[in-house]
């Protein structure tokens, strides 16, 4: 599903975010990216979404080399990739329903699809009863569930999560992880950057450790360190 071949990414201030990375992630895998702050986890994720372009190497997503993707095709790549973030990125002026519906609306899905898909996904994340609330009226965990719903409503092949539990307490985090696990069980490939030792050690999934841009460990059923 995802392949990185000799990928190197350097930022303008000559920080090396990723050095000669080679990774192969199969369809339906669940992968943790771990490492200190600034080690290159976020860059790894942003490269998959083509928010960043590597200097060297090739990145294949769903069988396509995304290096040569022309800019007008990037949106179609992103429709296959759901994203969630530490800060949720919800729109404060829209209700829970509208936030999720927005993701379908702006890719041109018809009203009928929105009317049927959005309530279904909100039920899946356990927020069916809060669809008319605004994000500020929700707890952090609930907000993250909305953002998971928004990322998954279009049934993407891949879900990218950049420290999704970074702002949540351990108990709430467990709920989010259960949700991601359920999504992964539907066949969706999940790549999650995290600092949360407890989660990584409990779930025992594949762990890729990045240290100052280099992949130093790639371990099936791994632990945080």
């Amino acid at each position: 599903m995802i392949t990185l071949e000799n990928v190197t990414k350097t930022y303008k201030n000559s920080t090396v975010a990723l050095r000669d990375a080679n990774v192969e992630i199969a369809k339906g895998e669940f992968v943790f990216l771990v490492g200190a702050s600034g080690s290159g986890k976020s860059t790894f994720i942003r490269l998959l979404n083509k928010e960043e372009t590597p200097e060297q190497g090739h990145i294949y997503v769903a069988g396509k080399d995304i290096g040569g993707l022309s800019s007008w095709k990037i949106p179609y790549l992103r429709r296959n990739i759901g994203c969630i973030f530490q800060d949720f990125k919800l729109l404060p002026t829209k209700t829970v329903f509208e936030n999720v519906a927005f993701a379908l609306e702006v890719i041109g899905r018809p009203r009928s699809v929105i009317e049927s898909q959005v309530p279904a996904i909100l039920d899946l994340v356990g927020l069916g009863h809060k669809s008319d609330s605004f994000p500020t009226e929700l707890s952090g965990g609930e907000q993250q569930r909305v953002s998971v719903a928004r990322a998954f409503v279009n049934r993407p092949l891949i879900l990218l999560a950049d420290e999704p539990t970074g702002n949540l307490d351990p108990a709430t985090s467990v709920g989010i992880m259960k949700l991601l696990d359920r999504i992964n069980k539907t066949g969706t490939t999940v790549v999650m950057a995290t600092h949360d030792r407890g989660i990584v050690d409990t779930m025992r999934r594949r762990v890729i450790e990045i240290d100052r841009g280099s992949i130093v460990r790639d371990q099936a059923r791994g632990v945080y360190e």
Partner: peptide, 15 residues
């Protein structure tokens, strides 16, 4: 913020 979300979920540039 809306624009950022639109880009993330794959709205086309023209949209």
């Amino acid at each position: 913020r809306e624009i950022e979300v639109m880009k993330l979920v794959g709205a086309t540039n023209w949209f």
